[in-house]
Structures are given as structure tokens and as C-alpha cells.
Amino acid sequence: MGNHGRFEGCIGVRQSIIHWFRFASPQSFYPLAGRMIPWFWAAAAISGIAGLWISFFVAPTDAQQGEGYRIIFVHVPASWMSMFIYLVMAFWAGLGLALNTRVSAMMAQALAPTGALMAALSLLTGAFWGKPMWGAWWVWDARLTSELILFFLYLGFMALQAAIDDPRRADKAGAILALVGVVNIPIIYFSVKWWNTLHQGSTINLTKAPSMAQTMLWGMLLMAFAFWMYSIAVALTRVRAIILERERHTEWVKHAVE
């Protein structure tokens, strides 16, 4: 909290740049997050409703897959988010480790459950899609397997943070784990991919995407946008709760809760 004041005092010239560091303090980030959350929720609701309407009522029935393909409007954005959130989480965790900014570490902690939810949603919707299309709930496809491993990595991160009582140590340990995970994700992905091609013939190929109708693409993009907005809104809501919990000994939290 005291840091930003010092920064601004010494480096007057670079005020406009340094100004952003103000929000690295929980006290100033808390109200900012509170002001942003309704906008993200609104964006998520509007684009979500529009995206669902397009994907259920406007997008044409797929020639090969029938109506069952419509689950990809949830499945694909969830898979994208699950991968992207891990990168964002590792970024904030690394920033927290390097600069010792508390909000960064709290942000990483707030993102993990959403990322895990997206990975679980991706696996679940993938299974629902796979049953009618492939006749199996689960196949050891490279993408499915990597997604499952990504889900395990999220669980490991959350379990490690939950097991350590001291929040500062939990942040740092979690950050190291997240960074180790980020280095390993490409290695895991390519090893799983190679393992898959070695073991399995090309019975199932997820990569050959049929040329998508324009409305399908719009539905997908709107849904992806809605997932983005939802993830940001939920992460900000959660980070506010974490800030309150961790800063409960301070005066401003007592005032804020009143």
C-alpha cells in the first residue's frame, strides 16, 4: 500500500506510467474491480444470449453430424479458455514472484478455479459430443488427453495453494508450480500427440474441420467472447473476496465491509 506513494513521489516525470502501479495495491484495486465487474457481467450476458440464440436457432443443421454438433458452441470456447487461462494465471503468478506484488498473486489464485471449471466443462461436453459422433464417451485422442492433463495441472495448483496456510508462501510455491507447468505444457502436448499417432491409426481425426457456415462462425465467436467476459467477471469477483480475506486486519477493509 505504501509503495505507490513512494514511487509517485520520487519519479514525478514518469507519473503517467507509474500511475498504473497504483492498482497493484489491494486497497486501490478492490474498488476498481468492483466498478468493472458489472460491465463484464453485462457483456457476458448479452453476448452469451446472442451467441446461444445464433447457435441454437440460426446456425444451420450440420450435414454430417445433425443437431448434435451444436454442443461445440460451448465445447470449443471452454477449451480455448482452459488453455488461455493457464497462461494468464502463470503470467500473474510469475509477475507476483518477480515483483512481489500481492494483487498479481491473488489474481493467479482467483483464476485457477475458473480455469479448472473450463477444463472440466471442455472434457464433459467433449464426452457428450463423442458419444453420438464416435460411439464412445472417451477416446485416447491427443487433444482429449492433453486437456485431461491440463485439468490435473489446475487441480495440483489449487491443492498446493490450499495446503499451505501462510498465504505468502502459498503464493510463491504456487507461482513456481505454475511456471514449471507452463514450461511443461508444450512438452506434454507434443509427447501426447506423438504417442497418439504412434499407437492409433487415423480412425478419428479432430483436426479436419469442415468449412464452417458463416452463422456458425459468428455463433462460435460470440460464445467465445461471452466466455471471456464471464471468466474476467468471475475472476474479478473472486479476487475481491480474496483481497477482503487477506487484508481483513487493515482499517480500510473494516470500512469497506461496513
Partner: peptide
């Protein structure tokens, strides 16, 4: 906890 953290990272070596 150690098993949960380490086993996913062991997968490339296993493969």
C-alpha cells in the same frame, strides 16, 4: 499432494 503435482509432469518421460 506430491503425487498430484508430480505425476502429470512425469507423463512425457513415461511416453
Amino acid at each position: 499432494l506430491l503425487a498430484l503435482l508430480v505425476l502429470p509432469l512425469y507423463i512425457p518421460a513415461l511416453i
